[in-house]
Amino acid sequence: MMTSECMPVTLEFGGGAELLFNNLKEHELQLPNSRIWTVRELLIWMKDNLIAERPDLFFHGDSVRPGILVLVNETDWELMGELEYEIQRKDKIMFISTLHGG
């Protein structure tokens, strides 16, 4: 696929969420540019294509499970429209599992 037909997006995982994604903290994606991608659609894509194990520890319904914080370009997704946020070229989406230990 030519670059112009793809949308580069970076996914980052932290707080242990990376363990479910092949233990990789950063994933560089090229999403097909043929449609609009919302976070909702990204999550579906991740469920089908990216998660390596135990999806129930990450997803819940059409969202992420309680205790996982989603950040769009280092901002809480709640301020960005959550599932409906339209992903832009070169966006960085982070999935941080909250830590409880001490």
């Binding site: 932290g14 309680p66 909250t98 830590l99 409880h100 230990g101 001490g102």
Partner: peptide, 30 residues
């Protein structure tokens, strides 16, 4: 504050109109 493994997290809740823990995490983690 919290820490596990090689990672840590830090924030302040309930300060001058800011959010609390439940604003961020209304439901407990499984």
């Amino acid at each position: 504050g919290s820490a596990v493994g090689m990672e840590g997290q830090l924030t302040v809740y309930n300060y001058k109109g800011g959010p609390c823990y439940r604003c961020l995490f209304p439901d407990p983690p499984p």
